[in-house]
Write a protein that binds this DNA or RNA. Structure first.
Lengths: 179, 179
DNA sequence: CTGTAGTTTCAGTAACTTCTGAAAATACAG
DNA sequence: CTGTATTTTCAGAAGTTACTGAAACTACAG
């Protein structure tokens, strides 16, 4: 592993551990993303200096997030792993999985709590707050779902638009002004 | 603490721990958000059954995230803590702090790595991927910064717009079509 | 069916994080 | 300044998560 790749792998390991993601899983995934060729579990273990079993567990985790593809090379018994070719596809999968695991349960918990009748002014106030949280989370979620619908090509256009992003939102503002 | 509030507090404790946030800190903050009145550290410790020192550390953490306000009641030596009155303000602070702590360092790490000359085809490929990551993260960050600029009243309008969100994005699409 | 290359599982240990109680520090009333 | 109410710090205990090596399992070539 070259120093440049190493540096990137280490950074994403660190960052991963600030999220819920295990540091070593973060490193493994960065390695896969930066590698032009699929890698075997042994190659990953070797490159990163982890035990073979740790890599096996990490890959299982990544598979449960649907972030890696498993492929077999004909005439070779080993299993090869790779990340999607499009970074945008990776980001979409991450958003979707996080939504499933964190946002959806929270929204449904909030909805449940909002169904029950408040026992007094204390709960009434709490319910108001819960309602605000629910509505906000729901709205932000809808936004990200809309963004997720864009394919890589569309996104490319948005990227090039760059700083003119403000203009898009100004137009949106005008629309809102009317309503 | 009523059962409804308890349930919500517990849920956010769980959810917090899936993010990088300490479970007990998550619970403390949920309690503060749901409470109409500011609370003292002792009240929090009492309600949640944590040690006083644990609460002290948790509040320090929350202060470092700028998520709580500290206030003094005249004629009372105790310190009272409260969450912002607007949920949207809380969300904006969260977004901003996460950006500072996670996104900005990643962007600058990627920029650094993109400055260095690739040592071979392996690094050349890796740099392509890093460039894609960088551009994508930068774009998504810009979007969230634009959204953050909205004040609570503006957001209220967006909330009411609800499912018509699609229309806003359709208009954006037309704009993109021209470019 | 047997042997071998490869993968997964899992119990135990290492490493890390959280939480506590005791002590120190702070702040202020009298 | 003294005493008391309050908050903070911190060393270590308790709890949790990550990692490993050994063993079990799987798949397949011969």
């Amino acid at each position: 592993m070259t120093p440049m790749i190493q540096a990137c792998v280490m950074h994403f390991g660190e960052m991963g551990s600030r999220w819920g993601i295990n540091r070593t899983v973060g490193q493994m995934y960065a390695l896969l993303v930066l590698s032009p060729e699929p890698l075997t579990a042994d190659q990953i273990a070797e490159s990163l200096g982890f035990s073979r079993s740790n890599v096996s567990m990490g890959l299982k985790e990544l598979q449960s997030w649907e972030l890696v593809k498993l492929q077999h090379v004909p005439g070779d018994r080993k299993e090869y792993y790779s990340a999607p070719a499009e970074i945008w596809d990776i980001a979409k999968t991450l958003m979707e999985q996080r939504r499933k695991r964190e946002i959806d349960p929270t929204l449904s918990a909030l909805r449940n709590l909002l169904m029950t009748k408040p026992s007094g002014p204390e709960e009434k106030y709490a319910q108001q707050r819960m309602q605000e949280m629910h509505d906000l989370i729901e709205m932000l979620t809808k936004w990200t779902m809309e963004i997720q619908r864009l394919d890589a090509a569309r996104l490319q256009k948005l990227l090039k638009l760059g700083n003119n992003l403000g203009k898009v939102l100004d137009i949106k503002d005008k629309l809102l002004g009317k309503s």
